[in-house]
Amino acid sequence: MSNALSKLFAGLALAITCLSANAYVVGGAASSLIPSSGNWAWNGSYMTGFRGALENAAYFGPAGIVNRTITTTNLTAVNSSTLAGVDMFVGTWVADSEGAGFSAAIMNYFLGGGDLFLLQDDSGHDVLGSTLGMSTTGSTGSVSNGGAPLFNGPFGNATNVQQFYAVGQLDESAILAHNGHVGGRNVENQVTSAFWHAGEYAPGSGSLFIIADIDMIATTSLCGQPLCGASYAPLNNNGIYALNTFSFLQQNGGNPIPEPASILLVGSALAILAARRRKG
């Protein structure tokens, strides 16, 4: 094999190694920045289960259900500098008054290719979605269902995903007007979530998910039951739904990782090229 081809294959091997090790960084506002969020802040106890699941190598990692390593980080400030270090921003239960100061930075981040995972809840905690034209109003709170990619995905099929406490719905006409997709509906046909592939909301934008109740993904015990919301070990329906949704966003976002089949295709093409050069 020629020296040039040797270098080419060495470069391919290095590229594949880097792609496999390329961690997808997920950040959210810490409680010091959004104090009224309490335990629903990104570093609050109600989000610990979700964050732990994202960093669980059996779920997300080279040998996991989804072949991508995830790391999470707390942002004590949300601006262009801090957002430059994350692939996805998670907007938790952010009060309108506390999120107003960084909503413009989030908009610029998203329109520039950053992915957004917005966990809205009610009209007092939807400032980030409202900036995108997606406000939240009250719902009946009945269970939600849907199909792929959120309810049916790599982590299984989720049915009857529950809402808790303050519950909300999204405006379907606003979703469709911004090229979005309805993710789930409750028993009364109210829309409880919506999603966008990268570039659908606007040219160059990242992927986007908006849910109308953070407690469909958070883990609490305030509802009078042993567990309210998502269980991540073992996975219940809410947990399956949350991880399917996250998996979809990171794969269809502004910084997607190539599927193993795509990497194999590149390798096969180079092997064919090498064979032809040897024959020549």
Results as ranks from 00 to 15, higher is better:
residue 173 S to Y: 08
residue 77 A to H: 04
residue 70 I to H: 04
residue 182 V to H: 04
residue 60 F to H: 00
residue 210 I to H: 07
residue 107 M to F: 07
residue 172 E to K: 10
residue 154 P to H: 00
residue 197 H to C: 02
residue 113 G to I: 01
residue 53 A to Y: 06
residue 11 G to L: 07
residue 78 V to M: 03
residue 70 I to R: 00
residue 51 R to E: 02
residue 112 G to F: 05
residue 128 L to A: 09
residue 235 L to T: 15
residue 130 S to I: 03
residue 222 L to R: 15
residue 122 D to I: 08
residue 207 S to C: 09
residue 227 L to N: 12
residue 17 T to G: 03
residue 34 I to Q: 05
residue 93 W to E: 15
residue 226 P to M: 00
residue 106 I to P: 06
residue 23 A to H: 01
residue 118 L to E: 02
residue 106 I to T: 05
residue 92 T to I: 03
residue 93 W to Q: 11
residue 69 T to W: 00
residue 113 G to D: 00
residue 150 L to D: 06
residue 48 T to N: 11
residue 175 I to C: 09
residue 44 G to M: 01
residue 83 L to W: 06
residue 7 K to D: 14
residue 200 E to D: 14
residue 257 I to P: 11
residue 273 L to H: 00
residue 41 A to P: 14
residue 52 G to Y: 01
residue 193 S to R: 07
residue 220 T to M: 09
residue 125 H to K: 11
residue 48 T to V: 09
residue 258 P to K: 02
residue 133 G to R: 01
residue 184 G to Y: 09
residue 26 V to C: 10
residue 50 F to M: 09
residue 40 W to L: 15
residue 156 G to Q: 06
residue 55 E to L: 03
residue 151 F to N: 08
residue 105 A to I: 00
residue 186 N to W: 04
residue 173 S to F: 13
residue 66 V to Y: 04
residue 125 H to N: 12
residue 100 A to S: 15
residue 239 G to T: 13
residue 209 F to T: 13
residue 195 F to V: 12
residue 55 E to H: 01
residue 201 Y to Q: 08
residue 60 F to T: 07
residue 120 Q to I: 06
residue 268 S to N: 11
residue 64 G to Y: 02
residue 121 D to G: 10
residue 89 F to M: 03
residue 275 A to M: 12
residue 101 G to P: 01
residue 184 G to D: 07
residue 136 T to S: 08
residue 29 A to F: 06
residue 238 N to S: 13
residue 106 I to G: 06
residue 36 S to H: 13
residue 202 A to F: 08
residue 237 N to G: 11
residue 64 G to V: 07
residue 228 C to N: 10
residue 121 D to L: 10
residue 276 R to Y: 13
residue 10 A to H: 09
residue 115 D to I: 04
residue 55 E to M: 09
residue 212 A to W: 04
residue 195 F to H: 12
residue 26 V to H: 00
residue 263 I to C: 12
residue 24 Y to C: 07
residue 9 F to K: 13
residue 18 C to L: 14
residue 72 T to V: 12
residue 129 G to E: 00
residue 52 G to I: 05
residue 221 S to P: 12
residue 65 I to K: 15
residue 28 G to I: 03
residue 264 L to C: 11
residue 43 N to M: 02
residue 243 L to G: 10
residue 241 Y to S: 11
residue 8 L to F: 01
residue 266 V to S: 10
residue 114 G to W: 00
residue 56 N to C: 06
residue 58 A to Q: 14
residue 211 I to R: 04
residue 1 M to E: 15
residue 129 G to C: 00
residue 58 A to N: 15
residue 173 S to L: 12
residue 46 Y to E: 12
residue 80 S to C: 01
residue 151 F to K: 07
residue 59 Y to N: 15
residue 11 G to K: 04
residue 142 S to H: 02
residue 266 V to A: 11
residue 129 G to M: 03
residue 67 N to K: 14
residue 208 L to R: 11
residue 209 F to S: 05
residue 52 G to L: 02
residue 258 P to V: 05
residue 154 P to L: 02
residue 260 P to L: 08
residue 203 P to V: 03
residue 123 S to T: 10
residue 229 G to W: 00
residue 34 I to N: 05
residue 4 A to P: 09
residue 238 N to T: 14
residue 165 Y to V: 14
residue 186 N to P: 12
residue 246 F to N: 12
residue 81 S to M: 06
residue 273 L to Y: 14
residue 113 G to Y: 03
residue 191 V to P: 08
residue 107 M to S: 14
residue 197 H to I: 01
residue 98 E to P: 11
residue 75 L to W: 00
residue 227 L to Y: 06
